[in-house]
Amino acid sequence: MANSALARSGSVKAASSNDAVVQVRDVCKNYGDIEALRGINLEFERGNLTTLLGPSGCGKTTLLKIIAGLVPATSGEIRVNGRAVTAPGPERAFVFQDFALMPWATVLRNIGFGLELKGVTAAERDRTARRYIEQVGLAGFEQKYPHELSGGMRQRVGIARAFAVNADVLLLDEPFSAVDEQNRRKFQEDLLRLVELEKKTFIFVTHSIEEAVYVSDRIVLLSPRPGRVSQIIDPMIDRTASPDDIRRDAVYLDVVEEIWQGLRQYAE
């Protein structure tokens, strides 16, 4: 189905270990009797955006939280920059599906909260927070409270907070799922710009095949529970084209189709 010259699918690419910022080795996760993840092996390279895609309940959030150190793996290990980790650390930042903003704090304080917890001085964290407020397009909203913002703006705060701590790895769990379609497209374009700008490692979870193909350097398809890596796809989209051209591009459409065929077996 897919044009294999343009979109490579295959097993895990053997990355030289100095490129791999995050390594997931033989990770399994059981919640009591429920086997959520089985034998996950993945590597994530610097400057790349990898999307985890799969049917609902296949363990995408679980895998992301294991990498974040928020949920312990039942077996296997996570290495970040070569070191095994079991708890959250400053080299990883999480963007939450429900934004996880403190309702009693202003936009400025929310964005600076990661820095506040690190013990950065007020003046310093305000300066950093303001820079990212600018970058995510929230200038003028510094003193607003979360309930005064739209869903899309709230997630911009969540993203700015993650960027402000200057982590190497950004973990995003369906960050745009609560955002309407127009804003979602704008978001995707902004995300691509930030990936370009920040040279960080992004691990992204989404339900949308189009979104995955549009933003990802690599897409990991997970099978239904117990989640396993079923396929890895490198979309190889030419991102120099305009957003609208990309969405009409034959390669883009082929990859979307290929993933749809891959996921369809689970839907039936």
Partner: peptide
Amino acid sequence: EMGRSYGA
């Protein structure tokens, strides 16, 4: 979880 992830 947000607090934990930022090292609180």
